[in-house]
Amino acid sequence: MKSYQQIISGNKRTDRTFVVIGLLVLLIAMLTLVALILDLAIQGLPRLDWDFMTNFPSRRAARAGIMSAWVGTTLVMIVTAALAIPLGVAAGVYLEEYAPKNWITDIIEINVTNLAGVPSIIYGLLALGLFVYGLGLGQTIQVAGLVLALLILPIVIVSTREGIRSLPQSMREGSYALGADQWQTTVRYILPSARPAILTGSIMGLSRAIGETAPVITIGALTFIAFLPPSPVQESVPFINFDWLESPFSLLPIQMFNWISRPQADFHVNAAAAGVVLLAMTLLMNSFAIYIRYRLRKVL
């Protein structure tokens, strides 16, 4: 039989070995992230200048830019945010605060969970079959915004629900005891208090949407767009104009994909530069969301 001393030192050795393995795996994961960022930066940063940001795509790599891509991304995100945030928050509020315990609620819950796991390209097929051809909306900014909104809806719903679930019951009781009804309680106390969680979820959802490529390719987004959609603001009354919703568009990830697919190395440099912009946007948004969540935890 081994002595206690041997067993203990043996245990310590196993534990130490495992910690080393764990840290090693972590290191590999982090190195991958660093390699990915560095590779993009080394290839792409030198190409990233004012001209690149303000030029349209071109057949010559050196003259090509991402003007139409980032404008398109911005406009599509406006549509996505305008649809996904209110709809997702409303659905989250319903499921957490209002929904009775019955089979209808069960069905809704199952569908939300299921939609979160549907591959994004399937959303693209939905948009192609239903929005582009079924409803005849064409390959436009509104369709792209709509499909990306549906895609991130589960993210907004889930984070809204988590935010609401973490609120103390004493807040609800306090409001109801004053004679408030459910809607007053929701609007006055629940939603304002769940705002940081909703914000976190919305930013994470939008950041996912910015990087999504597959569903937008599927609806047949053109990649060679050498013009901008009509401006959303105009000089004459009513100053706002929605023609841009029906305009064709390009997006940053689609532009990047298009350049990667070219055989010439010059275009790969353009792809890297577009990737730097894209990665910077998503990493910034995600970091911001994680920071808000971290602050929120400290407060609670």
């Binding site: 004493s170 807040m171 306090g174 004053l178 004679g179 006055r188």
Partner: peptide, 18 residues
């Protein structure tokens, strides 16, 4: 809800709104 408009309540732990 109409009852609660007429009957006020104070709880065990202070629960002011944020």
């Amino acid at each position: 809800m109409l009852i609660r408009l007429r009957v006020g309540m104070v709880f065990q732990k202070p629960n002011p709104f944020p």
